[in-house]
């Protein structure tokens, strides 16, 4: 099972400058683990030390935010598009 992961500009320098990469996995958790193993430089901005999703990042499967699905347990299927974007907030 492989999906395309779209990377935000901030993470691209840690992923060889690529805007999108193909990653294997059957859940978002597996996809992100594979991603950080391949590009360790993206880890700190995507996952917390305990492996949960970082608060300041949004991850989507196609059009849907995984926070409204099953977070890291969210299943993905072949050809899905996973997008990672920074959470944008302030005061």
């Amino acid at each position: 099972m492989s999906v395309t992961v779209r990377l935000p500009t901030l993470l691209r320098p840690h992923a060889g400058g690529e805007a999108a990469v193909t990653v294997a996995g059957s859940t978002i958790g597996e996809v992100l683990n594979e991603l950080v193993q391949r590009y360790p430089g993206v880890t700190a901005q995507v996952l917390n030390d305990d492996g949960t999703l970082h608060k300041f990042v949004n991850v989507y499967v196609n059009d849907d935010d995984v926070r409204y699905l099953s977070l890291l347990e969210t299943p993905v299927k072949d050809g899905d598009e996973v997008s990672i974007l920074p959470a944008v907030a302030g005061g």
């Binding site: 949004n58 989507y60 059009d63 935010d65 926070r67 974007l85 959470a87 944008v88 907030a89 005061g91």
Partner: peptide
């Protein structure tokens, strides 16, 4: 404020 993640995508 929090930019709606869906709008951001």
């Amino acid at each position: 404020y929090t930019v709606d993640p869906k709008d951001h995508l």
